[in-house]
C-alpha cells in the first residue's frame, strides 16, 4: 500500500541541537554523563564542546512527507538504525528531512505484515550528511484494512 511512496521526501527543516533538550534527553535515558551537559567537560574534551547522545535525533523535526498517510494507532517499531559521520555537537544547526526508503510485505503467523522503512537524515549547513536514523515500522493486517476503508 506504500509502494508508490518510496522515494518521497520532506522539505528540509532547520533544527538546533539545543543545550537544554540534550541535557533533558540524556537524563531521560539514564545517561547524565557531563560530556552531554557540563560546559567545562565539553571544553576539555577532544571535541572542544558538548556532544549529544547517539539516539538524540529522535527529538528533531524532519518535516512532513507530502502524500504519506500513516495510521495513528497500531504501528509497531520493529527496528532502528543510526549511522553517524561524527557525534552531534550541542549548539549546532542541522537541516533534517525524512525519506521513504522502502516498503514490502511479508506473510507471518499474524497475517500479512507491511514493513515501512523511513530514513530521517541530518545535514550541516554545507549539505554534508551528518547522521541517518532509519526506522522500520511494522503495520499489521487489521490496521491496513482499517486504513483502506
Amino acid at each position: 500500500m506504500y509502494q508508490n511512496d518510496i522515494g518521497k521526501r520532506s522539505a528540509k527543516v532547520k533544527n538546533v541541537v539545543e543545550r537544554g533538550a540534550v541535557k533533558k534527553f540524556a537524563e531521560a535515558v539514564g545517561d547524565p554523563n557531563p560530556i552531554y551537559w557540563d560546559e567545562e567537560t565539553g571544553k576539555r574534551s577532544r571535541y572542544g564542546r558538548n556532544i549529544a547522545p547517539p539516539t538524540f535525533p529522535r527529538v528533531f523535526d524532519y518535516g512532513v512527507i507530502e502524500g504519506l498517510t500513516l495510521p495513528s494507532k497500531g504501528l509497531i517499531h520493529g527496528e532502528q538504525r543510526f549511522h553517524y559521520e561524527r557525534p552531534l555537537f550541542v549548539g549546532e544547526e542541522l537541516y533534517c528531512y525524512a525519506e521513504v526508503k522502502d516498503y514490502y510485505e511479508k506473510q507471518s503467523s499474524m497475517g500479512l505484515l507491511g514493513f515501512l522503512v523511513i530514513a530521517n537524515n541530518g545535514e550541516d549547513a554545507d549539505g554534508n550528511l551528518i547522521f541517518t536514523s532509519t526506522s522500520t515500522i511494522i503495520i499489521n493486517e487489521a490496521v491496513r484494512k482499517a486504513m483502506s476503508v
Partner: peptide, 23 residues
C-alpha cells in the same frame, strides 16, 4: 537510548558510528 550509555565513558577514544537494534 539506555543501552547506548555503555559506550559513553569512552567518548575520548572514539564514537558510536553505527547502532542497530531489533525490538
Amino acid at each position: 537510548g539506555n543501552l547506548a550509555k555503555l559506550f559513553t565513558p569512552y567518548y575520548e577514544e572514539g564514537f558510536v558510528q553505527d547502532y542497530f537494534v531489533r525490538f
